[in-house]
């Protein structure tokens, strides 16, 4: 097997300042290969977006510091200087955000925004860049791309804006696309089309895709491997079919049960008690123990490490495959 496109080892992030400073990510390890879709699943505060942004060091600064290792295409991302980092962003790693209406520039046409990215990052001349922008809009399934390249974001529907943002992400031929909740703001009948588009782009361009989502239906539809995050750590990592067939971490199992939305005999929906911990609200014990039906004194006293087990990894003292 070829070397992974992206290799993350021991990635730890400290965010915020002063008393507000928290460890938002703790010792995160994973690989992404070309042509592969990796879903990072979790609730708010789980660290899933922090992890995605850290890969391109987007959340770095006085309020954000990283340690560990991020290797992308042979580069050591965490030690790149600002010039190399600029070239990594866009050309190596591109992002698609949840809210296209907020992420796109409202004062510039879609075609110009896409062309501008190519002129800035790849030093292409404006006319060639503008023509390529129309090709990209066609590639992402925008009807009448030449005409729509001249539209402003507010003149488009939500689905079209998300297509435009994906085209913008592809402008500099990145090897890795990170899509943060790319369909959460869209209607359900449009969501499937955008997911199908992402899948076909990954196959056609042989890219890596990291999909950040809270929606297990989206994961089942699209992902090759699943990383479940809870309180800043990966608690389970598995190939997608095995994950849904037999989740090992109790949190994974509880999430899959909750996602099936059915009333029990008492006329109530299955729930997970309690609520997700705040970002960085983690100690030296299993963060899920307070909500977990299988928790023992061991879980409340020590932190389970993420251990390999067959084709997956899991961090649990009492995984669901133990009877």
């Amino acid at each position: 097997m070829s070397a992974p496109l992206l290799s993350v080892r021991g990635l730890t992030a400290e965010l915020g300042s002063g008393a507000q400073r928290v460890t938002a990510l703790r010792a995160v390890d994973f690989d992404v290969r070309r042509g592969e879709i990796t879903a990072i699943v979790g609730e708010s505060g789980s660290g899933k977006s922090t992890a995605a942004m850290a890969l391109a060091r987007l959340n770095e600064g006085p309020q954000g510091a990283f340690s560990g290792e991020v290797r992308f295409d042979g580069m050591d991302v965490l030690s790149l200087n600002s010039r190399a980092l600029r070239s990594l962003r866009g050309q190596g790693i591109a992002m698609v955000f949840q809210d296209a209406a907020a992420a796109l520039n409202p004062c510039e046409t879609i075609g110009d925004q896409i062309a501008e990215a190519m002129v800035v990052h790849k030093a292409r001349d404006w006319r060639a860049a503008r023509a390529h922008a129309i090709e990209l809009l066609g590639e992402v399934g925008m009807p009448e791309p030449a005409r729509r390249a001249g539209l402003y974001p507010h003149e488009m529907s939500g689905g079209q804006r998300q297509r435009a943002m994906i085209a913008l992400g592809l402008a500099c031929d990145p090897a890795l696309l990170i899509a943060d909740e790319p369909t959460t703001a869209l209607d359900v009948t449009v969501q499937g089309q955008i997911l199908a588009l992402l899948k076909s782009i990954v196959a056609r361009r042989d890219m890596g895709l990291i999909l950040i989502t809270h929606d297990l239906g989206v994961v089942a539809a699209l992902a090759d491997q699943v990383l479940v995050m809870y309180a800043g750590r990966i608690v389970e990592a598995a190939p997608v079919a095995e994950f849904f067939d037999a989740p090992h971490h109790p949190y994974s199992g509880d999430m899959i049960t909750a996602a099936s939305v059915a009333l029990d005999a008492g006329g109530r929906l299955a729930t997970i008690p309690g609520r997700p911990p705040h970002s960085g609200d983690v100690g030296e014990s299993c963060a899920y123990a307070p909500r977990c039906a299988r928790a023992s004194n061991q879980c409340r006293a020590a932190l389970p490490s993420l251990e390999p087990h067959g084709t997956r990894r899991r961090a649990c003292f009492h995984p669901l495959d133990d009877a």
Binding site: T189, G192, L195, L216, A220, L222, F244
Partner: peptide, 24 residues
């Protein structure tokens, strides 16, 4: 249109969505 949390069913949903063009 709702992908259920099961791999086979969710992939079938996605196949069907890929067949329908962008509609407004």
């Amino acid at each position: 249109s709702m992908p259920p949390p099961s791999v086979a069913a969710a992939r079938a949903t996605l196949e069907a969505a890929a067949q329908t063009g962008a509609v407004e």
